[in-house]
């Protein structure tokens, strides 16, 4: 499994001009990893606290409603919608559709616009209540 460092690597990130299709691809990985690790730990903590009783749940809420808790929650919700829209894009690409340059670019941009709009729609009424 060892790599010979003398051999050249494919010149991907350092060579190509950045475009929406590249951004959406790495965002899919970044948001998926964030959801799995940060979202996963937060979700398990929420469930364990809920099952452990009102005091443990109050401790969870104290952290979740702290300024950092709000930022993490909003970030995770955007990550979820980005990963969801990007995932739907991947399922469509799997059918062989959407590889024309303009279509591909439009779908990539649509996932980012969609995730930002839905995140704003979800949080606007919650923030308005506080």
């Amino acid at each position: 499994m060892s790599r010979n460092p003398g051999r050249p690597l494919s010149p991907h990130l350092t060579i190509w001009k950045w475009g929406p299709h590249m951004a959406v691809s790495i965002l899919h990985r970044a948001t998926g990893s964030a959801l799995a690790i940060i979202g996963g730990i937060g979700f398990v903590w929420w469930l364990v606290a809920l099952a452990s009783g009102p005091e443990a749940y109050a401790t969870f809420l104290k952290v979740a409603t702290s300024p950092i808790g709000w930022i993490v929650a909003i970030g995770l919700s955007w990550s979820f919608f980005q990963h969801m829209f990007s995932g739907i894009r991947h399922l469509l690409l799997d059918t062989g559709a959407g590889y024309e340059l303009k279509t591909n670019r439009a779908w990539a941009i649509a996932t980012m616009v969609g995730s930002t709009v839905v995140t704003a729609l979800v949080w606007a009424p919650i923030i308005a209540r506080h």
Partner: peptide, 19 residues
């Protein structure tokens, strides 16, 4: 491990009755 912890917590609530 995380999945087991999550599922056990749900089952504890579901089988535990009203607090």
């Amino acid at each position: 491990g995380g999945g087991a912890l999550a599922i056990f917590s749900i089952l504890k609530i579901a089988f535990g009755g009203v607090p």
